[in-house]
Design a protein around this nucleic acid. Sequence first.
DNA 1: TAGATTGTTAATCGATTAACAATC
DNA 2: TAGATTGTTAATCGATTAACAATC
Lengths: 230, 230
Amino acid sequence: MAEKQRRRRIMMKKKNISMTVIRRLPKYHRYLHDLLISDIRSVSSEELGRKNGFTAVKVRQDLNNFGDFGCSGYGYNVRELYNHICEILDINEMHEAVIVGAGNIGQAISNYSSFKELGFMFKGMFDVNPKMVGLRIGEIEIQDIDFLPEYLHNNEIQIGVVSVPAKSAQGICDVLVANGIKAIWNFAPVDLVVPEDVIVENVSLSSSLLTLTYFMKSSMEDEKIIEGAV
Amino acid sequence: MAEKQRRRRIMMKKKNISMTVIRRLPKYHRYLHDLLISDIRSVSSEELGRKNGFTAVKVRQDLNNFGDFGCSGYGYNVRELYNHICEILDINEMHEAVIVGAGNIGQAISNYSSFKELGFMFKGMFDVNPKMVGLRIGEIEIQDIDFLPEYLHNNEIQIGVVSVPAKSAQGICDVLVANGIKAIWNFAPVDLVVPEDVIVENVSLSSSLLTLTYFMKSSMEDEKIIEGAV
DNA sequence: TAGATTGTTAATCGATTAACAATC
DNA sequence: TAGATTGTTAATCGATTAACAATC
C-alpha cells in the first residue's frame, strides 16, 4: 500500500512535457547564459520571449511546467533560472561520449569547444579506415573500430555519436547498443532502429538544407505576388 | 481588372503550407530516393508513413497540399512523386553557395558528398585566419574574408553558409546580406538579425545535444517508476 | 467484380493566444 | 500605494486522427 502511494507520488511528479516545450529549453539556456556573462541579474518573460521569438505567455507557461521560478513584479532571477534549466536539461554533470566515424563531422564535433563548456567530453574516437587509426584529433587518438566494444566496457560512456556514412550507420548503432549505450546522437541520414529504452537524436543536415531551398523558392514567389499586385 | 484577376489567381495557387508539413518533405524525399535506387515502382501512403514514423493519413494530407499525386488502389508512382517533391523543394537546379568560416564545420560541409548529390555546389570558402588562406579543402581554396564582397559580385551565389564563431556571425551575416545573399544557413549559436526578405535556417548542434540529455534523464526516471511499480 | 488505396470531411486533441486576478 | 510582472484559466487556433465515400 505504502509502495503504491510512493509510486503514485513519483508519477505525479513527472508531468508529460511536450516535445515542443523541450525544444525551446536550449534556447532559454543559451540566452540566460549570455545574460549571466553580461552580469545581468533579472529578466522578464517578455524579454526572454522577444529575444527568442516567443511570446511572454509561452515563456511563462513553458517554465511553469517545471516549477515556480518567477517572481511577480520582478521577473526571473537569471542565475537561479539558469541553474534550474541546467538541471532540467541535466547538464550539471559531465557527460562522456564516443565518436564513431572520424570523418569531417566527427572531427568537427570533437573540436567544437562549446560542447566542452556544456559539460560534454568526447573521449574516444573510432574509425574503420586504417589510415585514420592512430591520428590525433585535438587531444584524442583515433582507434580502430574493432576496439569499440572493449572500450565501451572499460569506460563509462553514456553517449554514442554516429558520424559514419549512411550505409554503416545501423551496424555501428547495433554495436553501440549491444555494449550498453542508451543515447545516440546520429548524423547519418538514416532512421536508426533501436530498442525502446535507447534514445536517438537525429541531426539531419540535408533536411535542413532542403527546407532552406523550399523557403527560398516560396519567398521568391511571394515577391512575384507583390510585384503582380502593383 | 484583368490585372487584379491575375493576381488573385497567383495568390490562390499559393496555399499557406505549414512549417510542420514542410519539415516532413525532406524525409519523403529521402525515402523515395532509396526506393528509386532499389528500382521499386510504387509505394502506398501506409508504407511511406510507417518508414518515417507518420500515419498514412498524414502522408496523404501532406502530399495533397501540393497536388493530386496518388492513384486509388495503387498508391504513388515512386519516380513521379520523387520528381514532384524535388520540384517542391526546388532542387531540380543547382544551388551555389559560399562557406564563411573554414573551421571544422565549414570543412565538413564542403566535403560532405550528399550535398553535391542534392545539387548544391559550395564554390567559395572564406576565413579571417591568414594561416588558413590559400589552403585547399577538397576542390576549393580558402580565400581571405576581405574578398567576400567582391566574390559575391562576380559570382551568382544564392546561399551563404555561416560557420564562424558566435561573436563574428552577425557581422558576417551583414556582409552577406549587404552583397545580395537572400538565404543563410547558420551554424553559429546566435539568432541572426536579417531584413524580412532574407531567409535564415539555423542548425543548432548544441540544442540538439541538450535535447538528447534531457531525454536521457527523463528516460532514466521512467525506469525508476517501472522499478518502483514492481 | 473485389480489394486496395486514395482524397476529403468531420471529430478530437494539443498548442497558442487572450484575459485577468494574484502577488511582489 | 502604484506599477510591473507573474501564474493560470478560458478561448481560439492549428494539427492530427478517425471515418468513409470515391476511384482505380
